[in-house]
Write a protein that binds this DNA or RNA. Sequence first.
DNA 1: CGGGTTCTTGATCAAATTCAATCGGTGTGG
DNA 2: CCACACCGATTGAATTTGATCAAGAACCCG
Lengths: 239, 239
Amino acid sequence: MTDFLVTKMRRRDAVSAEEAAVLHGIRGTHRRHAAGADLILAGDRPNESTLLLSGFCGRLGLLRDGGRQFTEINVPGDFVDLHSLLLKTMDHGVVALTDCEVVAVPHADLRRLTEAHPHLARLLWLETVIDGAIHRQWLVMMGRQDALGRMAHLVCEMAVRLEAAGVADRLAFELPLTQAVLADVLGLSPVHVNRTLMALRSMGILEWKSGQVTILDWDGLADVAEFDPAYLRLRRDPV
Amino acid sequence: MTDFLVTKMRRRDAVSAEEAAVLHGIRGTHRRHAAGADLILAGDRPNESTLLLSGFCGRLGLLRDGGRQFTEINVPGDFVDLHSLLLKTMDHGVVALTDCEVVAVPHADLRRLTEAHPHLARLLWLETVIDGAIHRQWLVMMGRQDALGRMAHLVCEMAVRLEAAGVADRLAFELPLTQAVLADVLGLSPVHVNRTLMALRSMGILEWKSGQVTILDWDGLADVAEFDPAYLRLRRDPV
DNA sequence: CGGGTTCTTGATCAAATTCAATCGGTGTGG
DNA sequence: CCACACCGATTGAATTTGATCAAGAACCCG
C-alpha cells in the first residue's frame, strides 16, 4: 500500500526493515475520488494527511476571477498535504486530476510516529522540504523560462518522479492531464499549451496522445528544459 | 540575537520560557556579509544553517543565459537555509541583498536540539513548511497575476513579514532592493518594474524612494494584490 | 449515432520585452 | 569645487510572446 512511498524514500536514505514495517503498518481511511473531485479546499483544517496510492492530484491556488494555478502535481507515493500536520489550516486546495485512490492517515498517528521514530520523522520532514524544492524550481521556470522550456521541464520532472516512485518508465508513461490543466500548471492559456506541445512534437522530442507520453529524445528535452534533477534529491544522503 | 525568530514563532504557537532559552542559547558563528555576497552557492553541502539577524537575503535560481529568479526574500529572524539540514546539497544559492549579519548554527546542534525538544523540532519543521507556503503563493502570483498584482503582492508580503518579526511597521519600512532585483523577484524586466512602480505611485497607493517604502492605501494595495495573509500562518495554532 | 469534452487552427489584441537613450544622484580624484 | 565615472531610475519605440476570441475537427462515451 505504501510501497511507492518507501521506494521513493529509499532513493534518499536507507530505510530499515523495521522502519519500512512501521510505514507499512500505517492505518488510515482508504478512499477513492473521481477525477475532478476536491480532496481538500483552501481553509480546511484537516486532522489527517492524505497519501496518494494511485492517480494524480494537483495542489492549486485560486484567484478572484476564477483563475487557477497549480503549484504541484502529486504522483503515487506522495503525501498531498503532509504539511497540514503543521500548517493546520490549508492555504490551498487539492483536486483529483484523475480517478484517485488514497489513504488518509490521522495526524495523531503521524505525530506519534515522529516522536517514536526520529529518523522517520526526518524522512517525513524531508518530504515536505522536497515539496519546497519543487516549488522553487517551478518558480524559476515560471519566472524565467518561456512556454517551451516550462513544458519541457514539467515533462522531465514528471518522468523522473514517476520513475523514482517505481510507477512508470522514464521514457514512456501515462500522464492523463488535459491541456486545460497543463495551462493552469504552466501559467499559460490552453491554446498556447497546444501550440507548445505541437512545437515539441515537430522537433521530434515528444509524443503525447490520449494521456500517453513518449519521450523520443530525452537529451533534447532536458536541454530545452535546462533540467537538472538535483532538486528532486534522488541521491542517497543520510538525514 | 534570536529575538526576531522567537517573536515570529510566538505569532504561531506558544514558546515556553524554557524553549525560548534553548533558542537563545543557540551558539554559532557570527558573520557579516556585504551586499552582493554569496552566502551559499547551488551545489554547496553546508554543515550549518544560517539565521539572518539583520539585512535582507534572497534565495535564487540561475539559468544558462545568466537569467536569475529569486524564490524567496528572507528577512531578519528567518533561517535562509534551514532546509539544508535535510536536503544536504543545496539546490539553489543565497545572496546578500544588503549588508547582512548572520549566525551560522551547526547542523549537529540543530539535530541535537530537535531530538531533545520535539516541540521545538515541530516549530522548526513549521518554518520550512511556511517557506513552502510562500513559494506556493509566489507561484500563483507568477502564473496568474499581472505585473501590477505581483508587485503589490510582494509589498504586502514583505510588510506583513517584517511586522511579524517585529522589525518594522507595516505601513512604512525599509526595503532597499534595486529595481533590477525586483525584476528578478517578479519575473519581469527592470524596465517594466519601473513602469509598474510608477503605476502604483500614480494610483496613490505607494511611495518607494531610496529603499524606503510607504504604503498610502493598504486596502487598495491588498485589493490589487488579492492579498490574503493566511499563507504566512500568523495565527496561534499549537503544533 | 449524438452530445459533450478536448484538441486544433487562424486572426487579432494586449502585455511585457528589448534596445536605446537620457537623467539624476553619489562618490572619487584632481 | 569641478570633472568624471558609475549606478540606478526613467522614458520612448519597435518587437515578441502569449492571450483572447472564434470556429471547426476529432475523440470519447453512453
